[in-house]
Amino acid sequence: MSVEKPASKMFIQIVRELRGIIQDEKIPPGGKIPSERVLAERLNVGRSSIREALRSLELLGLIETRRGGGTFVADFHNHQLVEVLSTFILQEEKDLRNVHETRKILERDAIRIVTDDEVLRNLPVWESLLKNVIAVGRIAREDLMREVIITSNNRLVLKIWILLKQYGKEPYSGLSTEEEQPLLQTLISEIMLGHTKKAIRAFEDWTKLLHKGRE
C-alpha cells in the first residue's frame, strides 16, 4: 500500500506549478492533463493536495473534469466582458467606485462564509498563508483574496469577482508591505479562529490602508 507524501508545499505554490505544467507542455484547450497520481509524483506532494489545487483551477474555469474521463484544459481566454463593461457601461468615476464597493461586498460575504464554516476555516491553505506572512513578511495580495473567494465555493461569485477585479485594476496587485503585515496576520488568524466580525474588521482596515496608499 502506497503512503501519501506530505503536503509540504504551499497550496498556492502547487496551483502555480500545475499551471506551469499546462503552459510548459503546451497542453491546448480540450487537452488532457496528467492524472492526480502522476501530478502528485511529479510535484512530490500528496494526492489530496493535488485534488484541492485542481478543484481551485476548475472553479477558476481553467480546467474541467469529466466524470470517468479525466481532467482537461478549458478555454479560458475569453474575457471580453471586461472590455464591454469598460466601453459601454462603466464610464464614470462613480461607476468605478460602485465596482470597488460591489467587489468588497462579495469579499466580505466570502469571509463570513469561510469563517462560519468549521471545515472551510480549517483548510491547510490558511495556515500556509499565515506562515508565509509571518516568516517572509509579505504575500501576493491577490493570492489571499482569491483563496477566500474560491473557498466560499460559489462559482458564479468567483467569476463576477474576477471580472470586477480586472476592471477595477486594484487594489490587490503586487506584494503586501511591512505596514500591511499585522492586519494580514489578524485577518487570516481570525478566519482560522472562526471570529467573523473580527475577521471582517481586519479586512476593512486592510482595504482602507490599500486605498489610502493609492490616493
Score class of each variant (00 low, 15 high):
His195Phe: 01
Gly61Cys: 09
Ser189Trp: 02
Ile27Leu: 13
Lys159Asn: 03
Lys26Phe: 08
Val84Ser: 02
Trp206Tyr: 15
Ser35Ile: 13
Leu129Ala: 06
Asp95Ile: 10
Glu17Pro: 02
Leu18Tyr: 02
Met10Gly: 06
Asn132Met: 08
Arg108Met: 11
Met192Phe: 02
Pro34Gly: 14
Thr102Asp: 06
Lys26Asn: 11
Val114Pro: 03
Thr177Glu: 10
Val38Ala: 14
Val125Cys: 00
Leu187Cys: 13
Ser2Ala: 07
Ile63Arg: 05
Ile200Gly: 03
Asp116Glu: 15
Glu190Ser: 08
Ile105Asp: 11
Asn122Asp: 05
His195Asp: 02
Leu85Phe: 10
Ser35Met: 10
Met10Ala: 07
Leu59Gln: 12
Trp126Val: 10
Glu17Val: 06
Pro29Met: 13
Ile63Met: 05
Ser173Val: 12
Leu85Gln: 01
Val148Trp: 04
Gln80Asp: 10
Lys9Ile: 07
Thr186Phe: 00
Val82Lys: 13
Glu25Ile: 09
Thr196Asn: 11
Leu164Asn: 01
Leu90Lys: 11
Ser2Asn: 09
Asp75Thr: 06
Arg141Tyr: 07
Pro124Ala: 09
Arg108Ala: 07
Arg37Tyr: 12
Lys169Thr: 09
Phe72Ile: 12
Lys159Ile: 02
Arg16Met: 09
Ala202Cys: 14
Glu127Ala: 10
Asp143Arg: 02
Arg47Asp: 03
Val45Pro: 02
His77Cys: 06
Glu170His: 03
Ser128Gly: 12
Asp117Phe: 05
Ile139Gly: 01
Ile160Gly: 03
Arg138Lys: 14
Trp126Arg: 06
Ala40Pro: 03
Lys159Ala: 07
Leu90Val: 14
Gly20Ser: 15
Leu175Lys: 11
Glu101Gln: 09
Glu58Lys: 11
Arg97Ser: 03
Ser176Asn: 07
Lys26Ala: 12
Val82Asn: 08
Lys104Ala: 10
Pro124Tyr: 04
Asn132Glu: 15
His100Met: 09
Leu158Val: 13
Thr196Gln: 10
Gln13Tyr: 08
Ser49Met: 07
Ile160Lys: 10
Lys197Trp: 07
Gly46Asn: 07
Gly70Ser: 08
Gly30Pro: 11
Lys159Cys: 00
Thr177Pro: 01
Val119Ser: 02
Leu96Thr: 05
Lys169His: 12
Asn98Pro: 00
Lys104His: 11
Ile150Arg: 00
Asn44Trp: 02
Gln166His: 06
Asp117Arg: 07
Leu60Ile: 01
Trp206Gln: 04
His77Lys: 13
Leu156Cys: 08
Glu107Leu: 10
Ile188Cys: 09
Asp205Ala: 13
Ile111Ser: 00
Phe72Lys: 06
Asn78Gly: 02
Leu60Gly: 01
Ile89Val: 15
Ile160His: 06
Asn78Arg: 14
Arg66Ala: 05
Arg201Thr: 15
Lys208His: 11
Glu25Pro: 01
Asp95Cys: 05
Arg37Cys: 04
Ala53His: 04
Thr186Asp: 08
Leu81Pro: 00
Leu209Ala: 08
Gly137Pro: 05
Glu178Lys: 15
